[in-house]
Structures are given as C-alpha cells and as structure tokens.
C-alpha cells in the first residue's frame, strides 16, 4: 500500500453513514488526483465492516477500519486519526465540516501542528494547496493559499456530489491504542428534540420568517399572511433562539429539512446552515432589504424591499 495523498475520515451516527461521508470520497479523490497519490478512508467505531463495504466506491484505494467503541467519541476519533497519520503519512487529512467534525478536527490539526482550513467549498492543488471558502455570512468568497506539505481540511456538506459505483479498495483493520474508557468527554445518550404542534416538513407552502422581523409582536403579520395564503409558518434559527416560536418550526441544519412546493423567505439572510434545510424546495422566493443577501443566490423570485411594506400588500392581495 502506497502512502496516501488524502486520508478522509467518514462520519456515521447511530448505525448510519452520513451523506457527507460519500461526498468526502469525491472531494478526496479530486484532491488526491491533484496532489498525485492514493485516497484512503478511515472508518472509526461502530459496525466498521458494514460501513467499509458501503464506502468501497469508485476511486477509493484503501479503507482502514478501526473497530473501537460504538458511537462518535472525540477522544477516540482524535487518537485513531493521529495513529493513522503516523502509520500512513497522508499529505491531507479530510474531515466533514459537521458538528462532530468540528469537535475533533481542530484538535487533530493542532496536535499534529498542521494548518487547518475549515468549511472548504472548493480545493485545488498546483504545487501549493488553495482552498475556497466563504466569509461574512456567505457574502464573499475567499481563496486561501496554504503553506506546508501537510494539511487538515474540513469540507462543507452538499458541495461535492456523493461518490458512486463499486470500488476495489483494500480493506484493512487498524488496531489503535486509544481506549474509549479513558475519554474525558463521555457520551451519555441522545435525545430527539422537536415534536410539538405542526410538522413543517409536511407543508406544501411555507412562509418562513427571520431576524428581519425585528420584534416578537411583528410575527402577527407573518401569521396573517400565512393564513391568507393557506400556508404554514416556519422560521430561521434566531426566531427560535429568542423563544418566539417553538423549536419544531426551525428550518436548517439543526432544525428540519423541508422540501415544500413554495418556500417564501421573509427577512432571512440565507446563511449556509439555514439553506441546508430548504434548498430542496421547488420554488424559493425571498423578500429582503439587502440586494446582496445570499438568499437571492438560490431564490427563483425575489423582492428587494422592506417586509413591512410588502407583506401587508400581499395580505391584501390574497384576502
């Protein structure tokens, strides 16, 4: 087995590989080709054999299975990745930019003393690694040149297509010293939040409200519009953080993924974690005062204007 150009670390939760794991394979293959070398994948904890089978897709050269523990534990993941890096010397370690990825990738980078770039949306290599990412709430993109000959990268979910096909990767079990019993952060269990009055994922038409609404009392305007349109009200995160709507109304990465026929975003900027929950809507419409709001980049129709002017007119039209 040759030293890999890229070692990608898969993510799974409660028995299931997460989508981003398959996207990592595509990003990893791309980068491995650019650097010139193999793509290796690590799958740590849980049913590693079954996961390795599923991850054995086109372009993967080797899969290292690390049978230790069941669920994600950052001490185990960090230890295992560091031992794998020691043994196989990859130029790049690739992680998902997920909540769990961000719970150990920065520690791995720090402990290996390699530069870290998070939330990559594009990567290129031409004698030097360059990474594209977003800044200022997705209003600008920047390209970063990364010095050195080893890097840690986390990649954004949904940016690369999932790898498909069947691969002929070598699957090898890798024994590690790290012991889950020694972890200083012990997972006690999981809880599903949400429930409540409505399931926004069932709605055909969502009227979704964001921080542009300014005050809790103004929500009435949104409910009036939803009633006139025969639609359901959902929201971005700050509305739920403020306690103005229950958690089950939140659209996004940590809320619900919705795919309605029509998603009307009112006073929502379109942060990546929000978009993750609604980009699959059939028709996206945005009302926002800021012509540069990133929500317009994924919208089908937009009104650049003040919601307090536009929404009352809409209510009138529908009544």
């Amino acid at each position: 087995m040759a030293d890999p150009a890229v070692l990608a670390v898969a993510e799974h939760r409660r028995g299931e590989l997460r989508d981003v794991s398959f996207e990592l394979l595509t990003a990893g293959r791309e980068l491995a080709d650019a650097i010139g070398g193999e793509l290796h994948v690590a799958v740590i904890s849980g049913d590693v054999e079954a996961h390795a089978d599923a991850l054995n897709r086109e372009g993967v050269d080797a899969i290292h299975t690390v049978p230790v523990g069941e669920e994600f534990d950052h001490t185990v993941y960090q230890g295992a990745v560091e031992e794998l890096v020691d043994a196989h010397d990859p130029a790049t370690v690739l992680f998902p930019n997920s909540v769990n990825g961000l719970d150990y990738a920065p520690a791995v980078a720090e402990s290996l003393g390699v530069p870290l770039v998070t939330d990559a949306i594009d990567v290129a290599y031409d004698d030097e690694l360059t990474v594209t990412r977003e800044q200022y709430g997705s209003k600008v993109e920047t390209t970063l040149a990364v010095e050195g000959d080893r890097y840690a990268l986390t990649v954004r979910g949904g940016e690369w297509p999932a790898a498909d096909g069947t691969g002929d990767a070598v699957v090898e079990s890798f024994t590690v010293d790290v012991d889950p019993a020694d972890s200083g952060a012990r997972v006690q269990g999981y809880e599903e939040v949400g429930g409540g009055d409505v399931d926004i994922a069932d709605a055909d038409v969502l009227v979704s409200v964001g921080r542009g609404i300014e005050e809790e009392d103004n929500l009435e305007l949104i409910f009036d519009l939803a009633e006139a349109m025969d639609a359901t009200v959902s929201s971005s995160r700050p509305i739920v953080d403020n306690g103005w709507l229950p958690k089950n109304r939140q659209v996004g990465q940590s809320g619900k993924v919705v795919t309605p026929d029509v998603y009307l975003a009112i006073g929502i900027s379109g942060a990546v974690q929000h978009v993750a929950g609604m980009k699959g809507a059939e028709t996206i419409i945005a009302i926002n005062t800021d012509p540069n709001a990133p929500i317009f980049d994924i919208a089908d129709y937009g009104i650049v204007g003040d919601l307090f002017d536009v929404v009352p007119e809409l209510i009138d039209d529908f009544e």
Partner: peptide
C-alpha cells in the same frame, strides 16, 4: 500558514427574477 489570495462576490446559483416596482406593484 494561510494567505488570502483572492476575494470576490460569489456567483449566483439561480437566476432569480427580481420583481421590480414599489411595494404594491411587487406584491401584485
């Protein structure tokens, strides 16, 4: 180890139809 080499506005993924006019016209 990092140097910013470029900064630009992202390209729009969709071709949003921006509805013009005052609030009444746009809402209509």
């Amino acid at each position: 180890a990092l140097t910013v080499t470029e900064m630009y506005e992202p390209e729009s993924e969709s071709d949003a139809e921006i509805i013009e006019g005052d609030a009444g016209e746009a809402a209509g």
